[in-house]
């Protein structure tokens, strides 16, 4: 299998503000969000990062998408280093997280064109991509409605379409079905499977076991910023359900009282 993404000893240490130090109540001034984390993703697979809230999943994905810099370590994305050529990395990936918002004032149609241009997509390719993605997510029906007037599901569909406007080979989704109703969540899940079938590499973070079981080829469990388990889904669920495996690992790492 061809490695398309390789995270090598990623570490992210945040300096806590005084306000954050008060909230932490421990008096510590620095917090390690990601701790020497390494993993690989292969071409055409869905790699799921599973972990509780605050485990470091989102920080890891933000580092890979070059939104933030690692304190140490590197990640090679399709042969390009995130530390050395972040702009090149951004051309190769499509990143979607709940913190990436669309401007309320614009319509899905305008935003799709805008982000396509920023990614250097030609007019012809843009129209083809738009037609396909808008049809898949049913965006045509609200393509000219301002984002401010869209429902959460419609906004999420638009965000996915916009993040994939440049047809990236590596797609990074942070909690893609969070806050969605069951129908929209199904549309998104089916689309992820479709992308995998098209040969795209998908890295997804979630804490929904059923989603991982449905779409993932391999799974990595992150607890307290460390990768505590990383294997193919088949191997992980050989003897126990994913949920049981996760809690076994969690208790081992954190303790039952947490």
């Amino acid at each position: 299998m061809e490695t398309i993404l390789e995270a090598k000893d990623l570490k992210k240490i945040y300096s806590l503000s005084k306000k954050q130090q008060k909230l932490e109540k421990s008096g510590i001034k620095k917090k390690t969000a990601v701790d020497d984390l390494s993993f690989e993703a292969y071409k055409g697979e869905v790699f799921a990062l599973l972990g509780p809230n605050g485990a470091g999943k989102t920080t890891t994905l933000r580092i890979i998408s070059t939104l933030i810099k690692p304190t140490s370590g590197d990640c090679i994305v399709d042969g390009v280093s995130i530390a050395e050529q972040p702009e090149e990395v951004r051309k190769k990936i499509g990143f979607l997280t709940s913190e990436l918002k669309l401007e309320d004032y614009f319509t899905p149609n305008y935003l799709f064109d805008f982000f396509s241009k920023l990614h250097g997509v030609s007019d012809e390719d843009r129209e083809k991509r738009k037609e396909k993605l808008f049809k898949t997510f049913g965006i045509d029906e609200f393509a000219e409605v301002k984002v401010a007037n869209l429902s959460t599901g419609m906004k999420q569909k638009t965000s996915i379409a916009v993040s994939l406007a440049h047809d990236p080979d590596i797609i990074i989704f942070d909690e893609p079905t969070n806050g969605l109703d069951v129908i929209t969540a199904k549309v998104v899940t089916d689309f992820l499977i479709q992308l995998r079938d098209e040969g795209k590499t998908i890295i997804v973070s979630t804490h929904i076991f059923s989603l991982v079981e449905k779409i993932a080829d391999r799974v990595g469990i992150i607890i307290n910023g460390k990768m505590v388990l990383c294997d193919s889904l088949k191997e992980v669920v050989k003897e126990k359900t994913l949920e049981d495996v996760f809690f076994d690992v969690y208790v081992k790492e954190v303790g039952s009282d947490e």
Binding site: L67, E88, R90, K91, T97, L100, K101, L102, F115, L118
Partner: peptide, 12 residues
Amino acid sequence: RGTIATLLVTPV
């Protein structure tokens, strides 16, 4: 509004 991050993940 959180829209600056959306711009920052593009290759611009």
